[in-house]
Design a protein around this nucleic acid. Structure first.
Lengths: 256, 256
DNA sequence: CGCGATTTGTGCACGTCTTCACAAGCGCCT
DNA sequence: AGGCGCTTGTGAAGACGTGCACAAATCGCG
């Protein structure tokens, strides 16, 4: 997916706890735990068991405990986890104690929605600039931010350190935009354009592709449809009694 | 992630090739290969080597070959893969030869953008209905489709078999919407709401969460920032683009 | 103070995914 | 025809992620 080639060097303590070199799969789940914890805190829970938190986050409880153990978590045997403490721990590990500046490039259909999306304007992230290459869109105001021309990117980056770049342009423009973002020092990119980006080592790219998600779902629909005719887990003789029952689901076929 | 409890029963051949029980990781990459192949076809390539296709899709060539071998692919040693043939194979496996009806629920900020998103209206997917619970939004026309009230879902589902439901509502409404979708026979859900959905076995859920993506990137930013001060084992990698970056990144801290 | 109920943290085994390395197959050129 | 270079397909090994099952730890209560 993206490139993480941090060497196996022992983690050096800075001002922050330790950076215990978490497994990527764990990192991907921490935000989900965090959301569940916030929800628990709002509903008055002070502690939570691994079972309860796991259920709220939609994972196995053993997996959750192992994940939390990776960040040297402080749970109490026989009691559970302190919700507030765990929130702090996870936010600290994820680096959410600092507010990061986000730049959004491409204010088309999707970009426009992202600019106004609440999930982006959380406590830890702030959209500081909107860019587009289309002069017709430059100057438009969205959610209190004025769309600037992409050529102004270096100037904006000079005023404020941009931590994350979000690309919501058409596929054809995405690579050029990525290059420009990297050139001004951005080391994390969230790519909504349907194409692969090539970036230098040390730059992280995460991709969100709606069409791909649909196609994956399509595969499972296809699989399930071809399974509906199965006799079930009977005593296995497994006579392929397919007979007349066609396995094709009754949706319109597309002519090639 | 989602629940796939297809038994280890041998795949039964229907009218379709075979359904060779692909690894989930492979399935997730096939759409990327497909996109790269379409691009190659448009630029006049008739064959492509695993090396070339892997580069275009941003993966390792060995991984690509293993992926393709899983679907019993027809490559030619010494030559490569026939682009057109491979496109057909992958589309067949993904079930893209049938057009699937998509229903979108929640026409707010994000849902509005999704309704107009080109990636959704591909050859294999067609948005057939938009729903919302807010009476103020019902009746609005988006991209040639009229927003209906969510209560009309059963009627629409009765007219046309809905294959995929897309949830773009606030988190609070998502579970109820999911239940309604399942009730009318939808077995694949793409969830943009920031919450976990609980669905019965046999229903696939894929989740897209923008806030989570940002938080994962935040973690890596955090990690990289705490690494810049490392003495570095030898002359190694560690790209130092963006010149003299100081140890602790100079972003404003958030008071707890 | 001790005991039992409860829950965390983790060693271990298992399954999945990735990567290497190479034999087998194909086309082309001589 | 034969040999050579190229590319696929795959066995095997390693890395990674998951889940079980249980020991260790803690609380509450008699």
């Amino acid at each position: 997916m993206s490139q993480h080639r941090h060497p196996g060097a022992p983690s050096r303590a800075g001002a922050v706890p330790a950076l215990p070199d978490l497994p990527e799969a764990t990192v991907a789940r921490l935000p989900e735990y965090l959301r569940a914890l916030h929800h628990l805190a709002e509903t008055g829970h002070e502690t939570v068991s691994s079972e309860g938190l796991a259920a709220a986050a939609g994972v196995n409880s053993a997996k959750l405990r192992k994940d939390l153990s990776h960040l040297g978590s402080y749970g109490t045997r026989g009691v559970g986890y302190d919700v507030g403490l765990l929130v702090e721990q996870i936010e600290s590990v994820l680096g959410l104690t600092q507010r990061r500046a986000v730049a959004l490039v491409g204010v088309g259909n999707l970009g426009h929605a992202l600019a106004g999306y609440a999930g982006f304007a959380s406590r830890s992230f702030r959209i500081v600039a909107l860019f587009d290459a289309d002069p017709a869109r430059v100057g438009e105001e969205i959610n209190g931010l004025v769309v600037r021309h992409i050529e102004e990117l270096p100037r904006v980056a000079g005023e404020e350190r941009l931590a994350i770049g979000v690309i919501a342009t058409p596929a054809g423009a995405a690579q050029a935009v990525a290059d420009q973002l990297v050139a001004v020092g951005v080391t994390s990119i969230l790519n909504f354009a349907p194409c692969v980006l090539s970036v230098p080592d040390g730059v992280d790219v995460r991709k969100v592709d709606l069409a791909i998600e649909l196609q994956i779902l399509s595969f499972h629909e296809h699989r399930k449809a071809s399974l509906t005719a199965l006799p079930g887990t009977g005593p296995s003789t497994l006579t392929t009694l397919a007979g007349g029952a066609p396995t094709t689901d009754p949706q319109e076929a597309i002519g090639t």
